[in-house]
């Protein structure tokens, strides 16, 4: 007997029953398809302005820095200032994403922008985010042709450029957005290879429970927030 049959057989023996009937299985499939929310805490809901304010507060509470700007045109300047402030070279590895291409990078010719996945010697990355989640100040990033995962992880400094209209209340809201933007003909979600939920810069408490930043991922996480809502 295959290991698979053995294990499933053992599960059923312990549960003192056979394979579930077709009806019972169909009912469980319906439960999956309904993917109902269970309990969404109060802190994951509110008006647009409340949610945006909570997102910023929560992100700051986990050591994220946030720079609000009024328009796309102000983004290159904000990034150049950030780099100068931390004595970083004016060179970034950027996600080749349509959302970021709208930004007039040429307005700051001193800023060197390389597009593509991260390389080991990249110090700073610039990426978009799929959504921001107010509940815990969490960013949701998805992998794809325009958004390589390594940019979220390898450099010491990760700069995220996003819009206030991308902020939602709860994780469930963020999944709903993803379900809408990637729903397949059969109604199921077409998952990207990787969905990263990121809440603050990388950290460790493994040395006497002292919190240290920059364990393996970025030591700093900075959000340039375009106010469009």
């Amino acid at each position: 007997m295959s290991a698979r049959d053995d294990i499933l057989g053992s599960v059923r023996r312990s549960l003192r029953r056979d394979r579930l009937s077709d009806e019972a299985q169909a009912a469980l499939q319906r439960r999956i398809r309904a993917h109902e929310r269970n309990i969404v805490p109060q802190r994951g809901s509110g008006s647009g302005a409340e949610i945006a304010a909570r997102f910023i507060d929560e992100a700051k509470s986990v050591a994220v820095t946030v720079q609000p700007v009024a328009s796309d045109a102000e983004v290159p300047d904000a990034i150049v200032r950030y780099l100068a402030q931390h004595n970083l070279p004016a060179r970034v590895a950027m996600a080749p994403s349509a959302a970021l291409e709208q930004i007039p990078w040429a307005s700051r010719p001193t800023l060197e922008v390389r597009r593509g996945a991260a390389r080991p010697d990249d110090q700073v990355s610039v990426t978009p985010a799929f959504a921001g989640i107010a509940e815990t100040g969490t960013l949701m990033l998805t992998s794809g042709a325009e958004t390589p995962t390594t940019l979220n992880l390898l450099p010491y400094d990760h700069v995220v450029v996003m819009r206030t209209s991308q902020i939602v209340g709860s994780y469930e809201d963020a999944w709903d957005l993803l379900r809408q933007s990637r729903s397949r003909a059969d109604g199921l979600i077409d998952m990207p290879r990787t969905v990263n939920f990121i809440t603050g810069p990388s950290r460790t408490g493994d040395i006497e429970q002292k919190i240290l930043m920059g364990a393996h991922g970025p030591r700093r996480l900075h959000i340039v927030l375009i106010e469009d809502a």
């Binding site: 986990v62 996945a117 991260a118 969490t138 990207p192 290879r193 990787t194 990263n196 990121i198 408490g205």
Partner: peptide
């Protein structure tokens, strides 16, 4: 576990890299 509201990285992985992906 640690008394954090949420851990820093929660990662959902599905299958291998897609043909168009730049890494993975």
């Amino acid at each position: 576990a640690t008394g954090q509201d949420y851990s820093v990285y929660t990662t959902v992985s599905t299958g291998p890299r897609r043909p168009e992906d730049l890494d993975g």
